[in-house]
């Protein structure tokens, strides 16, 4: 097994953001069906170890490529762009995030399910736009767009977290 191979090469896929989700899943299943430890359980120790290494590697690659955000982060990593060191975020974006976070806390306190759901929808919509933007930034060539993509990724990390918090709040109101 070639451990230096990147996740895209592992599945013989082009190194880009846009991916066919069902094709990726199909390839994952095809490869895993051959390397999974269960397929080698009746064989010798060496082969079983090998199978575990392979399956671990394939799982990692799939989990990274499957989710748009981690796929984007991985592409930036391959391009040598450090997302952590990206430029500062627009003040406007940060303000809105803070406001929303506060709002989630208040709605959660008040058990305002409908409002939480509304905010959830709105945030989701906004994130969809962001992911579209991410695709054009990442799949266009040039360093400048990679840095722009890094900014989008950082914002999306915030937004995904907030979305999780809304989910938590909704779950809490249910219990």
């Amino acid at each position: 097994m070639d451990f230096s191979q990147d996740h895209f090469a592992l599945f013989d896929l082009p190194r880009r953001y846009a991916q066919d989700k069902s094709e990726l899943e199909r390839l994952y299943h095809e490869v895993l069906a051959r390397v999974h430890p269960d397929k080698h359980a009746h064989l010798g120790d060496a082969q079983r170890r090998l199978a575990m290494q392979w399956a671990t590697r394939v799982n990692e690659a799939y989990q990274t490529l499957r989710r748009p955000l981690s796929r984007a982060q991985y592409l930036l990593q391959l391009a040598g762009v450090d997302v952590e060191k990206a430029r500062s975020m627009p003040a406007e974006f940060l303000m809105q995030q803070m406001e929303w976070r506060q709002a989630v806390a208040e709605m959660s306190e008040a058990g305002a399910v409908a409002e939480l759901e509304k905010l959830h929808r709105r945030l989701k919509q906004e994130m969809e736009e962001q992911y579209k933007r991410l695709q054009s930034q990442l799949d266009a060539a040039g360093d400048a767009s990679f840095h722009a993509a890094a900014d989008t990724v950082r914002q999306l990390m915030f937004q995904e977290k907030l979305l999780g918090e809304i989910d938590d709040a909704l779950e809490a109101t249910e219990a």
């Binding site: 390839l27 095809e30 051959r34 392979w54």
Partner: peptide
């Protein structure tokens, strides 16, 4: 194993 993966792909 390598050969098998290549075939899968």
């Amino acid at each position: 194993m390598n050969q098998s993966v290549r075939r899968a792909l």
